[in-house]
Amino acid sequence: MDNKQINLEVITKQYRKKGAAAKGFRTVNSLIKDNKIVSLRILLRDHKENPIDSIREVNERDNIDFYIDYFSILEIGLIANYIPNPLPVKTEREIDFILKNEFVNKYFTEYYPLILPQLLLKQISSKRDGQYFYRSNIKNSTALFDRFLMLNQIVKNDDDIDQFLWFLDDGWTSGYSISDFWEVLSNRDIIKYKLGSSNKHPLNSALWGFIKYIQFLSDFANLLRDSKEDSLLQSAFWHHQSYWFDHMKEKIGDIIKIGISNIRQSMSYISSEEIIHDKKSFLTSSDDIEKWRTDTSQLEGVEADIKYLLDGKLGEPLKSFFYESK
């Protein structure tokens, strides 16, 4: 078996054959095969027209999102020269069968547009002989794709990040919302009162998620910067997060506008004595605090990373590739 086939085998095992994606596949596949058109149409509706209220539906749609994500990852893998081009016939048949279905297709083209699976379907559908497209060997593309997979794993597999993004996406947990969270960041007394020492409190979890997500954004920005020699691959990586960087642009921008400014506010009101007597703070002397204030005065790096990621120009090369492809 050659290396690209091994890569495809491992990716398929992880992103398609287990966990939520496998459940998503089973749901969609059986609804299509059993010709349960009405059920499929209802399940994959636009939430703006008819909200998704039941937990069962939320879970099933989540599973299907994971399954569709597998197709996005395949497309990025093709662009990175990481997996066989063309794909094996069996994989092509599955792509054709699932993504061409009227209701599945509407889901990722009209209601929640994702360019990566659209591109994959287009390439499969218009294939004649040989490869879908030709790409010369790109320096470091394997290492970049490995990094992408590992970063993707971090952001998808962290309960704290989930909680923070759930708030950011207007979700509520135990009566708390994003506005409670932003308030917490600006008022030290509130956080002490609300959180106590419970790491399981949703606001505490979101606080950790906030820190971890900012770290993720910084790591993701560095991945994109390191991919600049291959603007198409860079753009494909960016599109994988386009729900947040494009559709939720303003919400992500709130991290700077509200989150960071509230933290600044917290810092300016706090007295050294209060910090020194706080057993939860690692700062134990005035010198510590002075150094800490100097060390943390630069938040520009965070802001620069977020502004960079929210620049829609990073999405353009893949869009052009989509419109230019056969």
């Binding site: 020492s197 703070s281 690692f282 150094k291």
Partner: peptide, 25 residues
């Protein structure tokens, strides 16, 4: 050295929140 460990290991936002006593580590 805890102060240096935090300074070198946490992202800026984490450093601030840990210094303010918002986080239990």
């Amino acid at each position: 050295r805890i102060q240096n460990l935090v300074a070198e290991s946490l992202p800026t936002v984490g450093k601030i929140l840990a210094g303010l006593g918002f986080l239990t580590i």
